[in-house]
Amino acid sequence: MKKNISLLVAVLLLPWLLYFSAGQSWVRIIDFSLLYLMLSLGLNVVVGYAGLLDLGYIAFFAVGAYCYALLSSPQFGIHWPLLVILPIGAVCAGLFGVLLGAPTLRLKGDYLAIVTLGFGEIIRIFLNNLSSPVNITNGPQGISDIDPLHLGSIVFNHGLVFGDIRIPSVINIYYLFLLAVIITMIFSSRLERSRVGRAWMAIREDELAASCVGIHTKRYKLLAFGLGATMGGLSGGLFAGFQGFVSPESFTLMESVMILCMVVLGGMGHIPGVIVGSLLLSILPEVLRETAGWQRGLFGQVIVDPANLRLIMFALALVVMMLVRPEGLIPSALRRKEMQHE
């Protein structure tokens, strides 16, 4: 318990430390990585628990983001409050999850992967093209001027002033996202240890044997799709409100793949693994932005385009990490030890 409290204090202080040492942009990066963490936790329900390989997960993020964007921007002149649109976005995404999940229930492994990938791409193509003849999504330009995340008069996207203390916007957002992440984490860990979570894991391990102990496998698979998608939709809404702008470009296959990597890299089906994986993969590319500086230090000039080099190193990191630790960075032995201490 003591350990938990000191961890909480550290997490609460982190943005301030970063803000004063590394600057605002780094806090912003951490804000985004919290969103990624939420997405990873959602995908972890689908891939990690239920074992359903979903390569189009970003679509649910997109649904949530566009729901938010359409219901609180000049696009249709609608400006509903946060506490209404976030749930709408989450429910819409969840419905999409069930809708897309239903026809794929019979599919296994790689087939499922490719169909979900297809669904993801279809949604993106629609977002890209639903601008004519009726303009819904505003096409590739996307939707801008989205209302900021706000509760009544508290606008998280702006700095808040309490007496003498001024909390910068990126730190407000940090706390808001942190709250969302913590809630998601509590929900997922409770699910993991519940009858529902066990049913998912049983399906993941052996679907047939699971059905033979009375698990309605189709229902539970749909449930996993729906819940995972709901979490994706929720983070999508937060994303839209944070950015103030959405466009189809943010929802490419590469993003789905990235989130899958986050889930697998840390050790899927296991929340600490997902946390490590998503933080690592969302922060690593940003750290690698510094390659221009390193090059100057090493060679006295920039030899290779830093944007390229960054992605090359990221790709290499993925390959090497998998070669070294194919079961993920947080090994399952840890999980076992933890269970024995229960």
Partner: peptide, 24 residues
Amino acid sequence: HAPKLAPLITAIGLSLLLQQIAAL
């Protein structure tokens, strides 16, 4: 003989790697 998703991730990594090297 690794878990099934591991080669999928290296494959994705390689894909990215090839693209970026080609871009260079």
